[in-house]
Write a protein that binds this DNA or RNA. Sequence first.
RNA 1: GCCGGGAUAGCCUAGAGGCGAGGCGAGGGACUGCAGAUCCCUUUCACCCGGGUUCAAAUCCCGGUCCCGGCUCCA
Length: 476
Amino acid sequence: MAIRIYNTLTRQKEEFKPLREGEVRMYVCGPTVYDYPHLGHARTYIAFDVIRRYLEHRGYTVLMVMNFTDIDDKIIKRANETGEDPKELAEKFLRIFLEDMKALKVKPADVYPRVTEHMEDIINFVKKLQEKGYAYEGSDGVYFEVRKFKDYGKLSKIKLEDLVKGARVEPGEGKRNPEDFALWKKAKPGEPKWKSPWGEGRPGWHIECSTMSSKYLGESFDIHGGGNDLIFPHHENEIAQSEACFGHEWVHYWMHTGFLMLNGEKMSKSLGNFVTVRELLKRYDPEVIRLFVLQRHYRSPLDYSEEGIEHAKNNLERLYNTLENIRVAMERAEIAFRWDEPEFRAYEAIRDARRKFYEAMDDDFNTAEALKAVFEVSNAINRYLTEVEKPKESILRKAWEFFRDVGEVFGLFEDYFKEQRAGNEEELINLLVEVRAQLRKERRFDLADRIREELRKLGIQLEDTPQGTVWKRIKV
RNA sequence: GCCGGGAUAGCCUAGAGGCGAGGCGAGGGACUGCAGAUCCCUUUCACCCGGGUUCAAAUCCCGGUCCCGGCUCCA
């Protein structure tokens, strides 16, 4: 079955067909680095991380590009407030962003083009627009003449008349028309600046994405993504610049993530109602945050609440328990010389859930729906384990492999599957378990419980079952 | 004003014409020296309101109510 993607451009789900066979080229708008990333950023980047992982899982080679806006009005403003050098400030928060994303297990992009590393390319792009008659130089900068681009508004469905009427567009001294936007801003005294044919200055915000995406992905590519708030004006302007310059369709699929909401309001720096990624990571495992995000469809607004995160934590705990149950059961599993009803039932449940998982992900990356399938396997395998004395190795393996695939796509259970059990740690634990078993036989429960308590503090949980005592690692 | 998204059991979320949606929480039971994990049962025939179409509507249509977002820097 084919993957279907909701395209903001057409406002409907479309079958995904990459421009080049087997390859997906995608660009996701990165942050302006002037502050700590908050959960809203995390939401968007985790969403695109899972989209990227899924495409890779389905066999595509994905070329992923994410930009850094490392020079911009906001950065200059913040630097002036704190007395820092704008370059150093940007550098600092760029590093912090990368660290936070790594902590959240977001796979790094293949290229992270920075504006300050691409001045020449940007200037050339503006020149081309000027040559083609879409751009003009004003007293304070170079502007894109919006009314010359006939398709303006096709992404956001905004009509030019309404835009002008809305009067929210700023007239600006150097502009011919209020709706025009800056491609190049001439530097005011004391501002960071680069040389250009129009004097010293810096690029406008939108031109960088047009320039850098086409540099790495070509004059047309598959997916361009970002937060919902970028549809207008940022992405609308990118389309205008790029299609004016190249003379043909630029991006095939536009994808946008819903906002992260806090008490009914969009979480944002300007509103000041944000929770930073670092803050959250101090209290929760990164996978809890990922699961929290994945429990909601990527296009829907996601409400942040402490309870919501706790829900995610409980859910993740359940999945880890299931993994541990399987692992422990593996030790007493046997080769199947025959199947009985429990085997047939477990097998069918896993088979059906796997199909559901892929169907849900194919349908515009419906992670919330896909998660249902994950819980179905969890339930089926736990039930199987209570039904049989000697579990069949093949059944456990089926479940195990399903979880491994889910983990690969969702960025969960990562450590679990790659974990090398260190040295003779296991033997030591087994020894303690044996000693405790003897103590229990002698009904010396105080000592037995002490061993259990102390191991628990070390992240090892002992569980007494009818088949004897097993030990599990506790993750969250 | 112009675009857009919503309202689903105690809670969080899927679904989008017809076979009891998933999880969490709560209560009960099984297993247990206790704990933990797991399983079973209950909460569970839920879809904002009012009309309409249909053999059949959470789902489609019309009309309301309420909530939220974008149109200005934003992921």
